[in-house]
Design a protein around this nucleic acid. Structure first.
Length: 194
DNA sequence: AGGAAGATCTACT
DNA sequence: GTAGATCTTCCTA
């Protein structure tokens, strides 16, 4: 198991997004570990993608998208938080949205944060996983390529077979919704929807 | 200064 | 399946 470095993130979101499936998202909180396997992601292509927050250029909200690859971008929507990973270099505001996790460690903590018991209710959606891992806007702009960070992604050493990766249209957006930029693991019970 | 929209979630029917 | 909750940011007057 090793932490994913900038080299991993410094590629096209269309390459990084499917590669993130099966990786382990790790949250450190007061010495406790909360982690989960990434089972669903979406790619956002910055300036050429009308659905991306960075489409209209740099604003206060999306400033973190213009950082180097391997930083977090946390934004609020309808009272919920969503977690992105910045991809492909500085001033190229591409990102990958982490949409769902399969809970692994710290499940009791997740249940507390979510006030839910069912494993499939803990992190099966972008807003839910931020609650389960207690990710707040304080994480916006955080470097997630260091093992001493409070948030990072590890390589499980386990490759997802290409035949288990499903490509589909993105969810919950009104513009440029026709692109097949959503990726999830086939047959996972922990994705947000089918 | 005010209004509208947004990469959602939950509860209830 | 549908409605309501309820916060931040941006656009317009």
């Amino acid at each position: 198991m090793k932490v994913l470095k900038k080299k991993f993130y410094n590629r096209s979101p269309l390459q990084v997004a499917p590669d993130l499936l099966g990786k382990i998202l790790v949250r450190k909180l007061n010495g406790e570990i909360i982690s989960g396997r990434i089972v669903e992601v979406e790619a956002y292509l910055g300036s050429s993608d009308q659905a991306a927050h960075s489409f209209k250029g740099l604003t206060k909200r999306n400033a973190s998208l213009f950082k180097d690859a391997g930083h977090a971008y946390v934004h609020t929507i309808h009272t919920q938080n969503c977690l992105d990973v910045v991809v492909e270099g500085s001033n190229i505001p591409h990102s990958v949205l982490i949409r769902a996790l399969e809970p692994l460690e710290g499940i009791e903590l997740m249940k507390q944060f979510r006030n839910k018991e069912k494993l499939t209710d803990l992190a099966s959606g972008p807003g839910k996983l931020c609650q389960a891992l207690n990710i707040t806007k304080d994480f916006d702009g955080l470097n997630i390529t260091k093992i001493d960070s409070e948030l990072f992604i590890m390589d499980s050493g386990f490759e997802i077979e290409k035949s288990s990766i499903v490509t589909a249209k993105r969810i919950g957006i009104s513009k440029a919704a026709e692109f097949d930029y959503r990726y999830y693991i086939k047959n996972s019970k922990y994705i947000s929807r089918n």
